[in-house]
Design a protein around this nucleic acid. Structure first.
Lengths: 261, 261
DNA sequence: ACTCAAGTTCCATTTTATGGAACTCTCTTG
DNA sequence: CAAGAGAGTTCCATAAAATGGAACTTGAGT
């Protein structure tokens, strides 16, 4: 056990609901002796990974981490491109847009563009949600062959709501539809009343894959608006796929993509 | 020398111009034996601090760092409040807005809102500029007593242009004006043709201090627009200062703050 | 197939981390 | 205001990990 892994464990303690940690937090969260916790936090602060909050005994991530974390977006330039596309669409339609990446069976939001509507979907960057029960997750899972999806979910899963896939077979059936149509959709899955539409695109040179998603209250969007969102997302993702020469890109089905005469 | 400090040295290698590193990069940048560089990068990747780019030998910051770095903004909630204010003003006037923090004699950009104008100031998050030669820097230095400024610049400084303070006395004189007027301004300092206006505010409970800045091409802003920007920044900062009960807040001079009848 | 640059592995030595216990500091409470 | 509790720090011998030079492997370009 290197001190490096202990330090990373500390970083993993931070979340959208825990912005700072203390020695005792580490003792209870990680079960480490408090002598270690005390020295580790001080060492991480001395090295510049953490900052103390005011003159208290609380530690939070440092400016350095903020800077390095920011570079992730540019290093993974696919994210930047996708973010630009989602930002533009979010601006046009006024609904919340975000982009996410998959880590195993989890989806993590990377960037978000809040909508303008009074009734808007609020997303939290950095939180993990289940891939199988979200449109972003299924848009990304649809890029995998069924075998690999089966392997990922060998342990089964617990559906969070009635409209989410109830078992592996239903998930695979929905992924098959996603592959045919070129987009994924969710309704009342993680949050009631919320609908979301996602497409995915990858960059074979870096191995990155991201989902582009627009999320909106189901009640206030007309069928025409919904179709326009699907088309915008599909077109944006197709442009990126052309740039990266993504071999696994799933284009919109022609019957959806064709614009009215 | 703990491996922690070596790992942090690696993180410091990343910049807006270096999005990923290799073993040889570390050997030349940090002068470490390549055996160490090789193991260190692998260990950092295994722990989740870095990711390999595709299947190449290049390493970039990981999603984890992106997530933790994001938390910095919320942990330092002053930054979030200031960012909201600057974002709104940037939207209104169409010019680039950003917020920065001070680390010693350096200023680091934390968030930015690009302007809408065709001619716009582009800032890069995470890069360091000299505090004495920027409006954001002087807005933050103005919060310190002269003694402390003298101590910071005991080693003197090299002015980057004719319009920047040429020596410590001129810097102190300009800080005195900033304290009286309630804002700081730069013109042709870091970048020719660029003007910037900054105010600063702090949070005594966390010890954080940030500068709010609007930056614009000198040629296209009228005196009335400039005054409106100063007033917007001053009012926004004053609202934050009231929330945090900032004891060192410098309000706008009444002759500037008063709006036309 | 050859060459060179880049990266990885090996190993004895040196340095650092570990965790229990004693100690200090700082609030809270009687 | 003193006792007590909770939180954090320091100490120390032991256990574990990092170091760096050299040998070895990989891979891209000729």
């Amino acid at each position: 056990m290197s001190i490096l892994s202990a330090a990373v464990d500390v970083l993993r303690c931070f979340s959208s609901t825990r912005h700072d940690v203390t020695v005792t937090d580490l003792v209870s969260l990680l079960g480490m002796p408090k002598s270690n916790a005390s020295r580790l936090l001080r060492a991480m602060r001395d090295e510049g990974l953490l900052e103390t909050v005011g003159d208290s005994k609380r530690y939070r991530p440092s400016l350095l981490l903020s800077q390095v974390g920011h570079i992730y977006r540019f290093a993974a330039s696919l994210i930047d491109r996708a973010d630009a596309v989602v930002g533009r669409i979010s601006d046009e339609v006024g609904h919340t847009g975000y982009i996410s990446v998959r880590r195993g069976t989890d989806i993590v939001g990377v960037t978000a563009h809040p909508g303008r509507h009074a009734l808007r979907v609020v997303t939290s960057i950095g939180d993990r949600i289940a891939a199988f029960a979200s449109s972003t997750g299924r848009a990304l899972l649809a890029r995998l062959p069924d075998d690999e999806v089966r392997r990922l979910y060998a342990g089964g899963f617990v559906p969070p709501s009635d409209t989410a896939p109830q078992d592996l077979d239903e998930l695979l059936a929905r992924l098959a539809i996603n592959r045919r149509e070129g987009y994924a959709e969710s309704h009342d899955e993680a949050v009631r009343g919320v609908r979301a539409i996602s497409v995915s695109v990858g960059d074979p040179t870096t191995g990155d894959e991201v989902a582009l998603c627009i999320s909106f209250p189901a009640a206030i969007v007309t069928p025409e608006e919904r179709l326009a969102i699907i088309r915008s997302l599909g077109e944006g993702a197709a442009e990126i796929a052309a740039l990266t020469r993504d071999p696994f890109f799933i284009p919109l089905h022609p019957s959806i993509a064709e614009t009215a005469p």
